[in-house]
Amino acid sequence: MSDLVSVAAIKDLLTECPICIEHFDDATRIPRRMPCCVQSICQPCLESYSGGAATLSCPMCRRRHNLPGGVKSLPKETVILKTLDYLKIQKGLHLPCTDCPDKEIAVAQCDNCGTFLCSICLSAHKRNTVSKTHTINTFDEMKGRPLQSFRRLHQCSQHQQPVQFYCYTCDKVVCVSCTVVDHKEGKGHNVVSVNEAHQGKAKSINDVLGKIEEKTKRLSETESALQKKIENIKLSMKVARDDINKIFDNLKDRLNQRRTILLSDVEGKSAENLKVTEEALDSTRLLLTKVKSSSEYMRQMRNKADKVEDLQVMGSSKASLNSMLKESPQEIPFDRTGVSFVQANVQHLQNTINVAGMVRSVTFSPTERPNGIPDTAVHNVITLEPAEFPTD
């Protein structure tokens, strides 16, 4: 399980790829949103995992995806890209002007347009009849402000207009031109404002996240219980070994062969029980890691997203979160199991040296509690493996 990524791998500002731990950027290490784990991974890592094929096994949870368009068909994580621009401004790094072809160094941002402006474009922006009343924030003024105050321009890739509506039918944010071309209500499309859609979807996703948190708690409890079972198995193995050694240390060479057989029996029976329980623990930890990281990642993403970004995040993540709620870890059929050493025939060593002692499994399994047994009392079915004495 060393290839899994834990919740601790998600950094405070979501600026690092959880696989290679390199910083995201908007040129090479572009963050791409995975549809299964509600996580973003840099494009080079995903291309390495896919090997250029049209299928990709998620580095986080190993789920396979068909990507006919390759890794680049996965959506960019706009919240992370916004965060990167925000950090550059806070650290005084250079950002290119998005309003001129020369890509001069930007010094301000138009709050209305969402564009970065160099000093020349800034002057033109202030003189332009349409934009002269816009609110301008210089980068110096933006330093120290919270990420939530930092705006990005959300434009329709088809019509280059602001996206202000949401189509429930297509699960997509759209512009006003889209509502009269590809998303007309007369053609069966249910289109509402971004604000209205965000309000409805936020409640739904919050309900799912609440259930995810409850599942996280249950999985944590299961993990602890499984770990305790493993400790009990190991403890019973140690006690059985100690009992065997205590008896056989007082015997002569004639007992050495029999002792070896019994010790091997302890190891063999314990190994079977440990294998089943450890597989269940691995399964629980795998699902717990996925649920924890997805929940934490989703909350951090939504804290930094505006309404449009939040809609996109929720739309691409809800199915995965619901799918996680249906996943169950591997179960084991017993409550507690172990081995014990039966000190049979020890008093008749001379006649029974070849059949001295045996190892058997003792399993405590949950069962229906009879009337009159208080809930605080331990009540299990105890199964003892049949004792079969070896023959000469």
Results as ranks from 00 to 15, higher is better:
140 D>I: 08
141 E>A: 15
142 M>S: 13
143 K>T: 09
144 G>M: 10
144 G>R: 08
144 G>W: 09
144 G>A: 11
145 R>Q: 14
146 P>R: 12
146 P>E: 05
146 P>F: 05
147 L>N: 02
147 L>A: 06
147 L>I: 13
148 Q>A: 14
148 Q>N: 09
149 S>D: 13
149 S>K: 10
151 R>P: 03
152 R>M: 10
153 L>P: 02
153 L>E: 11
153 L>C: 11
154 H>G: 05
155 Q>D: 02
155 Q>F: 08
155 Q>K: 12
156 C>Y: 07
157 S>A: 15
159 H>Y: 10
160 Q>S: 10
160 Q>H: 12
160 Q>F: 03
161 Q>S: 14
161 Q>N: 12
163 V>M: 13
163 V>Q: 07
163 V>K: 13
163 V>L: 14
164 Q>L: 14
165 F>E: 06
165 F>T: 02
165 F>W: 12
166 Y>A: 01
167 C>F: 03
168 Y>V: 01
168 Y>Q: 05
169 T>Y: 07
170 C>S: 12
171 D>C: 13
171 D>F: 07
172 K>R: 11
172 K>D: 08
172 K>H: 09
173 V>G: 02
174 V>W: 01
176 V>L: 15
176 V>G: 09
176 V>Y: 14
177 S>V: 05
177 S>H: 11
177 S>P: 06
178 C>A: 06
179 T>F: 00
180 V>Y: 02
180 V>H: 06
181 V>R: 15
182 D>Q: 03
182 D>P: 00
182 D>W: 01
183 H>L: 00
183 H>E: 01
184 K>P: 01
184 K>W: 00
184 K>I: 02
185 E>C: 03
185 E>M: 08
186 G>W: 05
186 G>R: 06
186 G>Q: 04
186 G>C: 07
187 K>H: 07
187 K>F: 00
187 K>Y: 05
188 G>W: 08
189 H>C: 00
189 H>E: 00
191 V>A: 02
192 V>A: 09
192 V>T: 10
193 S>C: 02
193 S>R: 09
195 N>R: 06
196 E>T: 04
196 E>G: 00
196 E>L: 06
197 A>F: 03
197 A>L: 01
197 A>V: 04
198 H>M: 04
199 Q>L: 12
199 Q>G: 05
200 G>F: 07
200 G>I: 04
200 G>E: 11
200 G>A: 10
202 A>V: 12
202 A>E: 11
203 K>P: 00
204 S>N: 12
205 I>K: 00
205 I>L: 03
205 I>M: 04
206 N>H: 10
207 D>R: 14
208 V>H: 10
210 G>I: 08
210 G>Y: 12
211 K>F: 11
211 K>A: 12
212 I>E: 11
212 I>M: 15
215 K>H: 05
215 K>Q: 15
218 R>S: 15
218 R>I: 05
218 R>D: 10
219 L>T: 07
219 L>F: 08
220 S>N: 08
220 S>P: 00
220 S>A: 14
220 S>F: 04
222 T>F: 02
